[in-house]
Nucleic acid binder design. Sequence first.
DNA 1: TTGTACGCGTTATCAA
DNA 2: TTGATAACGCGTACAA
Lengths: 362, 362
Amino acid sequence: VAPRTQRKPTLDTVAAALGVSRATVSNAYNRPDQLSPAMRARVMATAAELGYAGPDPVARSLATRRSGAVGVLLDDRLVRAFADAALPVMLDGLASVIDRLDQSLILLPGTAGDGPRPEAVARAQADVIIANSLPDGSAALAAVRRRGLPLVVIDQPLVSGAPMVRVDDALGGRLAAEHLLALGHRRVAVLTFATAPDGFEGLAPDRRLAGMRYLVSRERVGSYLATLRAAGVDPPVWEAPGSARGLGRRGAAALLAGEPARRPTALLCASDELALGALEAARDAGLSVPGELSIVGFDDVPAAQATPPLTTVRQPLAEKGRLAGEQALRLLTGDRAAPSHHLTVSLVVRQSTAPHRSQHSS
Amino acid sequence: VAPRTQRKPTLDTVAAALGVSRATVSNAYNRPDQLSPAMRARVMATAAELGYAGPDPVARSLATRRSGAVGVLLDDRLVRAFADAALPVMLDGLASVIDRLDQSLILLPGTAGDGPRPEAVARAQADVIIANSLPDGSAALAAVRRRGLPLVVIDQPLVSGAPMVRVDDALGGRLAAEHLLALGHRRVAVLTFATAPDGFEGLAPDRRLAGMRYLVSRERVGSYLATLRAAGVDPPVWEAPGSARGLGRRGAAALLAGEPARRPTALLCASDELALGALEAARDAGLSVPGELSIVGFDDVPAAQATPPLTTVRQPLAEKGRLAGEQALRLLTGDRAAPSHHLTVSLVVRQSTAPHRSQHSS
DNA sequence: TTGTACGCGTTATCAA
DNA sequence: TTGATAACGCGTACAA
């Protein structure tokens, strides 16, 4: 035997020590039924003795042509992506199926809202990619296609041939807007996250709203606007460059500034995170919610149930992750191309909205 | 040429098409200097033509004996791990160095606060592991050792031989407690996250406090208690089973219940997330902060700067991630075993604490 | 530039 | 049944 002292033990080492073939040792780990229990026990014993921790995952991947990992593409840096509590909830749903199937999770953070660098995608050791909420035309998706990796898209963008898991944003937007209209609000403002990955922050001009680069923005915000306008209400739209509480607070502060008579009595927020920020802004401004200001969120993240409980459009976040994970696995095993899921949403009325009280009434 | 229609192109395919050797194509991708520019251009051109997306990451890993990924061990499920905003901040710091060095990030979620399953660790395709805040004796760490993977520990537990990145929790605990003492508070309560991964929630008896299974709890909470007791104050300790806002709210509510004369005038919270929850509880109870109740957090997460800005112990979260990443990479390249880092903390006094007003004064 | 010996397993196919 | 043989899988790296 060659003098291989330092080297880590491999299947061969164990097989040699035992005087059996490598295949037998492999079987001991992967196909216990191909082996007598006694032999298996002997293999495991000497493996433990030699400090062999089981088949090398990389080598196994090469042989299997399976890395056993799903790669998740995020639009932005981790701090920013996780600034919205909706992400961990979704990921947790995903992780639950991933883990059950012994797959692992590779996170590919993006840059400036545009998704991961193509090189990072090219190097990712994943069998399947789940793209989470990327802007139209992200270079990362081209890289995925180039590698021929199966792809599942969550939320956006539309990618031909890729199954998608998304929610009915148009319905959600309508429900939220109708709720406020039904409560008698006419001075409504919209607070949204980015409509394009360019860092813009401020009152969005019509031109911008006409060219939104995110499907979700188009549908959700588009639906807010359509519903409101159909009722003769033309709301100002503040666009934040992301979905973080601080951004929501700043945007809401801007929308709420100005003389009381013209101040919005209701805020339609494209995410709970923004709505939670708006809640803070209301508090800053000394405005009671829902007394003087109604606020509606979107998502129904766990935090929406806190102080005061937020009226919001509930979307099944964990379910999205779970479904995306299942789609991904189905793509892997190849039984039938998975169909897209279009999940429904519902309005959850809690305590951040109330009927509009005209200024003349008591 | 063999009829390999469906198969994905490999280095060989490209080499054959070009009539050169496989090595040349490999060099074209990895060592442009070993190649004439003209040849390189030709290689890239035919690669593009054939739809070859570059060397297969898994095969490359096998040959290099490097997977190019760092594995991060989390104590709990993703939703729970991310319930504390400190995690994404740390991970972002980590991701910044990871990404710069073309490594990717594998997330290994845990179960019930005890870290990932050993099998998951055994299968992880990572060159190095970063364990984030695991309890003493987590099975995951044994699995890491078994595989002989280099390990960096963040916060806890102490693992002999593994470099560590942690903060001075004892100092932080003392600063926070002394701050309240200096403000004249005598009726102080402590609100902490788990002291053992067993799901306990409630007032922690002394017995529990004597056997804390987390290093951070031992130091941070231990320091609260030591400092307070040295001043003759013996605080009740509420233990939440995790560090989430909702848990903090519930715990604080319990601590604040009871007759006003015996109610604590100050809360020492082991994390900002818990403190933020306590803030909600105070609001629920109609208590003004800091007028009637002072609250101190720990961490200084971004949200600590919101309504009202939280007095807290600042620890360099992103820096922790960055350092851990650098340690990990150093372990990989092998230049000198990286030393442990013990980062300092500082008290940031903001607006959630104020001098104690005795009930007799105006 | 090229030849070619690895890297470490998996999985038919065979033989006993 | 139980175990062995050997052909891959796809690159990397060093000597020639």
